[in-house]
């Protein structure tokens, strides 16, 4: 069931990324280009995704446990620390440079452009480096 849940939600998420335009780096850059020729579309992606999730989580997180797991695995940290902020600074910079964040980069692998694979490999290397300093 865990495997089915993973595959099914992955499919929906991937279709959502492709539909939204998030897998198009030029569109993402256009969204971040608020001082230039701003493309507001992706604001609607974020808005509708957050609204949908907020409504859904309202109901679901009131339940005692998930359907096919013993508990909800939610992050327990509440402190806004240096790691969180410096991580977000680096991520935002990389996102603005090329236009991929992790989900769209993975989803776009299926388009079979070598440069996307190079991005994903670099991203995993970056994760491994950060994993080491912990």
């Amino acid at each position: 069931m865990k495997l089915f849940a993973g595959l099914a939600t992955g499919l929906i998420f991937g279709a959502g990324l492709a539909a939204s335009g998030m897998t198009d780096t030029a569109k993402v850059i256009g969204f971040l280009d608020v001082f230039g020729d701003w493309d507001s579309d992706l604001l609607f992606v974020m808005g509708s995704a957050v609204l949908t999730a907020a409504v859904g989580f309202q109901y679901i997180l009131r339940k005692e446990k998930p359907l096919f797991a013993l508990k909800f695995s939610l992050p327990s940290k509440t402190e806004i620390d240096k790691k969180l902020i410096s991580g977000a600074v680096l991520f935002g910079t990389g996102w603005g440079l090329y236009g991929y964040c992790p989900g769209p980069a993975i989803a776009a692998l299926g388009y079979l452009s070598p440069v996307t694979a190079v991005f994903v490999i670099s991203m995993i290397a970056g994760m491994a480096m950060a994993g080491r300093i912990r």
Binding site: A19, S48, A49, A69
Partner: peptide
């Protein structure tokens, strides 16, 4: 399309939480 895509993304996150209690954080 942006709204439809966003709804699908949100729906996926809700389903993953409902089914197996996990956060749909790609990283």
């Amino acid at each position: 399309w942006a709204v439809a895509g966003g709804v699908l993304i949100g729906l996926s996150a809700v389903l993953l939480m409902w089914l197996i209690g996990r956060i749909a954080g790609i990283s």
